[in-house]
Computed example of a mutant assay.
Amino acid sequence: MAEHETDDIPLAGRVREKLVERKQDWAREGRLLTGTTADPSRQRLPPGQTLVRDWPVLDLGVQPDVAREKFRLRVEGLVENPLRLDWEGFLALPQEEQVCDIHCVTQWSRYDNRFAGVKARALLALARPKPEARFVVLHGYDGYTTNLPLGEFDAPDAMLAHSWEGRPLTRQHGGPVRVVVPRLYFWKSAKWVTRIELRAEDQPGFWEVRGYHNHGDPWLEERYG
């Protein structure tokens, strides 16, 4: 374990303000909404989604370049045992693989993604959430945040992934480590994760305060709030 360091993580690019404004407009206009819902046990593709074979790269325009020797992960807030992990400490945790679908709010879905990493509930078991902990805020090295109920982060398929399709995650897709929460729209799966904060009260993140839905269930088409 090591102390957290962020000051020397280089950031490439800058926030694309016009992109952010356009997506805020989409939220106000309800763009892409079909007004339908679906049962995930009966319908694999959520309403309004289009299946793709590639993996589109979407970000705010800023990509941190996190060398593995600089990587730090904190799990803190309302936990009995705050965690401070470097790369070696992260890899020393139980490693698992899973295959899952991912669904982006911008209307694309991709089936059968093979991720490898550490299950979120394994981290939580080590950190031991306090009884009053009910929400999680994910923080990325790029300054991005997103929120979700603790129960969604503690789901069996929630993961902190370092590999995709047998290869290390690229920087473009959130490497060295990103969150994967398959049951929610993928903006909830923060890239370049460095801090996991457990809270008693909800705290909407970057897109949530800009008109996106606070929960983000693709089968209920919770694109916007």
Rank of each mutant, 00 (worst) to 15 (best):
L169C: 10
R16K: 13
G48F: 05
P46K: 00
R28S: 13
L33A: 14
L78S: 02
F90C: 02
F206R: 03
V79C: 00
W108I: 12
G61Y: 07
Y144W: 14
E197F: 11
D101W: 07
D202V: 09
S109R: 05
A155R: 08
H213N: 15
A200N: 03
Y212H: 14
R223T: 08
H162K: 04
L184Y: 10
V136H: 04
G48N: 10
K23S: 03
L58Q: 14
F206P: 05
D7F: 12
V209Q: 12
A27P: 13
P149Y: 06
C100N: 09
R44I: 13
S163Q: 15
F71W: 14
L73Q: 03
L78C: 07
L184A: 07
R42K: 15
V99M: 04
G48C: 13
Y141M: 06
E21I: 09
E80P: 02
Q95S: 13
Y144P: 02
K188S: 07
E17G: 08
L126H: 13
E97F: 05
L58R: 14
G225Y: 10
P176C: 09
L60H: 13
G205L: 00
D202Q: 11
N214T: 14
P56T: 09
R178W: 05
R199T: 15
L184M: 06
A27K: 05
L19Y: 09
